[in-house]
Design a protein around this nucleic acid. Structure first.
Lengths: 247, 247
DNA sequence: ACTTTGGTAATTGTATCCAATGAGGGCGAA
DNA sequence: TTCGCCCTCATTGGATACAATTACCAAAGT
């Protein structure tokens, strides 16, 4: 364990790095709900000692990603179908309010950013549709080494997250933005979008375009309604697709 | 998520004890916003080593009570007037939704608990009014040793928190309840209620009674409206009273 | 065959030691 | 006198050693 990963980024704490790694593992699905994680194993895997690993786990527990039982151990938190439904209910509440506020106080910078993100997402959608027939590997070479090349789906997920975050930031209420952001991350744990049919993406893109229009028009009620519809639509899409957990 | 409602378990860990102590210190005001806390000092004060103190601080940072800057130190988080206003905005949103849901799915146990809490609060209000003329000490003996005897104001604050928590629990959406609970705790950092005039307490009591009536009647719209009015009214009361921080 | 009990092993929680880094003060030069 | 640089030091971050507790397994008795 004294083998310090020489390439640890300077200025960054090991605890932060470990936190991000575990978090991404949970979001990506490589750490599955119910799975038990032991500190020593993680420490060995990440080339650190147990101390930063413990710190990371405490933070993850506070963020609601894992369950820490006092002297028994830590497991990846299991979310029931009911929990997921509840999360989307609250997301609809918070994000629709944020969209309404954003429609009131939007700037041209906000709109430019949203349009740019939306354009990138539509491009990623097209790339995804193109790859749909030719298999799941990346377009160029299909290299799937550890040196993470992003799949179109991953790009889409990242841009979608950025899009929603941008609206939250534009709403002007940091507390509202933070509460909703927390739920977005938690809700995305089980969602890989991988198996969703093309229609669902098309609907989401349509929602996004209308959202931009409503915000640009400065119409809070409209923006609220579109966002609420969008969030519930997403919930329905994912529940149709069948979440990979028992519930 | 992680906002544990009260302490479910005795928690034999030193880290838990330290966490609760610091948390109470912040809520109580003995640790003031902007104040720097050092691990060694806290460790000495609580009779533990730095390790559990560090763990507690990490949790507090994740909960939004302190700001941890990488190699500089930890300070009690400072909340601006704007932050407080934002918090109440989101509380109004979430708690009114919870009240509406609670009106739909209330049980007799919920109603009994609410009525009981409300009765206790009215009693505490009377006790507070009685003490108002005779000084600030407790009614019996006026012992103010370290063995915390609760003042009527503290009783009121605790019962009020329990009242709101009971409605959140009754709403049936654990995610909604948790999101709102987190904001309740954070918002209470600066609020000691100590200086509020009798009228404001009377208004709050009136709100609570009407809330119970609306929930008992099973009228979601009414319950929502009352709760929204109650939260905004509280915000206004506290902003009138003048929060003790610069803003 | 099932249950209960005791022991062992594994894992968590805490303490202490060492390294690294940012902060503040002192000294020197303009 | 004031600005700037360097040095020391206080404090955080990480590693490791140690203690305590729990979970699992096996063996024996009913």
């Amino acid at each position: 364990m004294s083998a310090r990963n020489g390439q640890a980024k300077p200025g960054l704490r090991a605890a932060d790095r470990v936190y991000e790694e575990i978090r991404r593992g949970i979001l990506k699905g490589s750490l599955k709900p119910g799975e038990k994680i032991t500190e020593e194993l993680l420490a060995e895997r990440f080339g650190a000692s147990r101390t930063p690993v413990r710190s990371a786990i405490v933070r993850l527990a506070a963020d609601g990603f894992v369950d820490m039982t006092p002297r028994s151990g830590t497991v990846i938190k299991h979310r029931s179908q009911r929990d997921i439904a509840d999360i989307y209910e609250v997301r609809a509440l918070l994000e629709s309010a944020a969209a309404g506020l954003a429609a009131r106080s939007r700037t041209t910078a906000d709109l430019d950013a949203l349009k740019s993100l939306q354009a990138a997402m539509e491009e990623a959608c097209r790339a995804r549709d193109a790859n749909e027939c030719s298999g799941s590997a990346g377009a160029a070479g299909g290299e799937r080494s550890d040196k993470e090349t992003e799949t179109p789906i991953e790009t889409l997920s990242r841009l979608n997250k950025a899009f929603h975050h941008r609206i939250l930031d534009a709403c002007g209420n940091a507390v509202l933005a933070d509460s909703a952001a927390r739920l977005m991350d938690i809700g995305l744990i089980t969602n890989t979008y991988t198996t969703l049919p093309r229609n669902d993406f098309a609907r989401a893109m349509s929602d996004h375009r209308m959202l931009i229009t409503a915000i640009e028009a400065g119409d809070p009620r409209w923006a609220e309604a579109v966002m609420r519809s969008h969030v519930f639509g997403t919930r329905n899409t994912l529940s149709k697709a069948g979440l990979p957990q028992s519930g």
